[in-house]
Amino acid sequence: MSNVLFSIFPSENFIDLGLYQYGWEQCDPAHSFGPAARTHYLFHYVISGTGTLIAQNSKKESVEYHVKSGQGFMIFPHQICTYTADPDLPWEYAWIEFDGLKAKEIMEMAGISQDSPIYKPRYKDISQQMVNEMLYITQHSQESPFHLIGHLFLFLDYLTRSHSSPIVKQGNRMRDFYIKEALSFIEQNFQNDISVEDIAAFCGLNRSYFGKIFHDTVGKSPQEFLISYRMSKAGELLKLTSLSIGDIGNAVGYSNQLHFSRAFKNTYGVSPRAWRYEHQGEEN
């Protein structure tokens, strides 16, 4: 049997929470990854063995952590880190990479941050359920995207409930209201020529304050989220329709096909045409 399982999630059309890749590995002694930065949230759970994580905290200072079996560690987007298996007792771990609108809020609920990235379960039974979900996802990559996303939600529920120092998030009702209004406006108008100023004006806020609360809540700037949302919709149209590239660009708010193709390639790494060729034959 191979000492590693690795899969990439076949769909990027989930906005609230999306799955990117997941796997399991029995590491060789002193096996190391990094220094490198990830684009999304990446969680490792150590099933056996031990190892070392070196990760930047919120002040960009490198901190070393020793992580053993029964614990885990979270790597945050754009955080530079290195992790290395012990030379005598190398770790076996499962991992899952995810992101989305709710990811930042979930990390706050779990009490996991760049300054406190180590997962130490408070409830062993709930922690075991979390591990079961990680292994289930890893071993069932052939299941439909909706099926796997359902198990991602279960994994995150067990993660937040089992961690040793959960933080009860104090909701800001007005802030939540503004963000819901903004997301609703984007959902209904993404195909039009809208700007961040338009979204802020719809919410009755100045652009600077709106940008701050949006980024604090969602983890992306309004402009980054608008582009991401449009590209997600473009991906659906490329996969599910035979519309031309220009028509799809128009349908997601880009009157200039060149601007649309550039934005799409910046998001997915390939042109719309190449992405369609790669994905249109997939089962839904």
Rank of each mutant, 00 (worst) to 15 (best):
N206I: 06
E105G: 12
K59N: 14
Y93W: 10
Q114E: 13
S228C: 07
S208I: 10
Q56D: 11
K68T: 15
H163N: 15
I167H: 14
K104F: 06
R173H: 12
V196P: 01
V67K: 00
P35E: 09
E278S: 13
D16L: 09
Q280N: 14
L17E: 04
E25G: 09
T82M: 03
D193K: 15
F185A: 07
F73A: 02
F146R: 13
S48Q: 10
S32N: 09
I137P: 00
K233D: 07
G150M: 04
H163L: 08
A274H: 12
F177W: 11
Q280F: 10
I15E: 13
C81F: 15
L152K: 01
N192C: 10
V131P: 03
D86L: 03
L183F: 05
V4G: 08
M174D: 12
E133M: 10
G281C: 05
M107V: 03
G219Q: 03
Y123T: 13
W91R: 13
Y268I: 03
I227K: 14
I54Q: 06
P272G: 06
E187V: 05
I54P: 00
N172C: 08
V168M: 10
Y178A: 05
Q170A: 14
I245G: 06
F14M: 07
I199W: 00
Y209D: 11
F146C: 08
Q79S: 05
L89K: 13
I179G: 02
L5P: 00
R161Q: 15
T138R: 04
F155T: 05
A110C: 08
L205Q: 11
H163S: 15
Q129C: 13
S221F: 06
D99M: 08
P90K: 04
L243I: 07
W91H: 12
Y178S: 04
W91E: 08
N132L: 12
Y41M: 05
F214V: 04
K104C: 05
F76H: 04
I179P: 01
Y45C: 13
C203S: 05
A103L: 03
R38K: 14
F14L: 08
N3L: 10
Y83Q: 00
E282L: 14
E108L: 13
N266G: 06
W95F: 15
V218T: 07
L238F: 04
P87K: 11
A37D: 13
I149K: 12
Q71W: 01
A94N: 06
S113V: 07
L237G: 02
N13S: 13
R173E: 13
E283P: 01
S261W: 01
L183Y: 02
L226W: 02
S69H: 11
G204I: 04
Y45M: 12
S242M: 09
D16M: 08
D176Y: 07
D28H: 09
F76T: 01
P87R: 09
S32E: 15
E197A: 14
H66F: 13
H40I: 09
K233Y: 07
D16P: 05
I47R: 11
D198K: 10
N266R: 15
G34R: 02
G269P: 01
G150K: 06
E181C: 10
D86V: 01
S261R: 11
L5I: 15
V218M: 02
S208C: 07
A200E: 03
